[in-house]
């Protein structure tokens, strides 16, 4: 064992043997026991996110099917303000970056880097949400709410579902800031931060699909 390991590490660019789960002395196939709790939690949340994306794919499918069903009402070309969508996209993209900076801060146990990164992420996410609510309110006020046509029903359910996810993410974000403030970078808190950052990055990926399929293709159509 002690002879074999240095050799193995020399051919081990991914440091697979690094610590080996719990650094246990167990041997043989599956050496080191089950993976750490961080890996299990992260992987489980990854599978949740993928199933969330599959749910979104159903909304995308219904939007794509109904995009032409305007019932004589306005279509995307008349309704969408691409400049506004560009600003929303910028907010969400930069918030994804600052969320990454915050998770680096957590990994390095730098309290203020984490808190400031999270605070900036919150502000950017809230700006995104504000613009989206303004857009929705404007559409509803001019009589183009979800009841106007099948196209608008699909539009509001798809984009609104993403907006609801962002709202939930913002509340989760505040919870994580408070938990780090109250409890510090404990192992369980670190796992929640990992899940939160995965969630936030996944929301940005879904938004890429939204601005392309709904807004840009809707205006080109």
């Amino acid at each position: 064992m002690s002879v074999a390991h240095p050799v193995a590490h020399a051919h081990d660019p991914y440091r697979l043997g690094h610590g080996g789960g719990h650094g246990s002395e167990a041997q043989g196939h599956g050496e080191g026991g089950p993976p750490s709790k961080r890996i299990i939690v992260g992987y489980g949340f990854w599978i949740f996110l993928l199933s969330d994306i599959i749910m979104f794919s159903a909304f995308f499918a219904s939007y794509a099917v109904l995009a032409g069903a305007t019932a004589g009402g306005p279509g995307g070309k008349q309704l969408f303000d691409i400049g506004n969508v560009g600003i929303e996209t910028g907010f969400l993209l930069v918030s994804s970056f600052t969320c990454g900076v915050a998770s680096i801060g957590a990994a390095a146990r730098k309290f203020w880097l984490f808190q400031i990164g999270m605070a900036v992420t919150f502000v950017l996410g809230a700006c995104f949400l504000g613009l989206e609510i303004k857009e929705f309110a404007g559409l509803a006020a001019q009589g183009d709410g979800p009841q106007r046509s099948a196209f608008l029903s699909a539009f509001f359910s798809l984009v609104g579902c993403h907006g609801l996810h962002v709202t939930a993410g913002l509340m989760w974000l505040l919870t994580m800031m408070a938990q780090v403030l109250a409890k510090g970078f404990r192992a369980d808190i670190m796992r929640r931060i990992l899940c939160f950052s995965l969630f936030w990055h996944a929301l940005d990926i879904i938004w890429v699909a939204v601005f392309t399929v709904v807004y840009l293709l809707g205006v080109v159509r």
Partner: peptide, 25 residues
Amino acid sequence: MSELSRDGLDDQQAEGDQHDIAPGD
């Protein structure tokens, strides 16, 4: 080390089962 890996089944393969990374890490 188990008998198998000592007898020349690739050491790295045995190590490969050992460690994953959480998504996002």
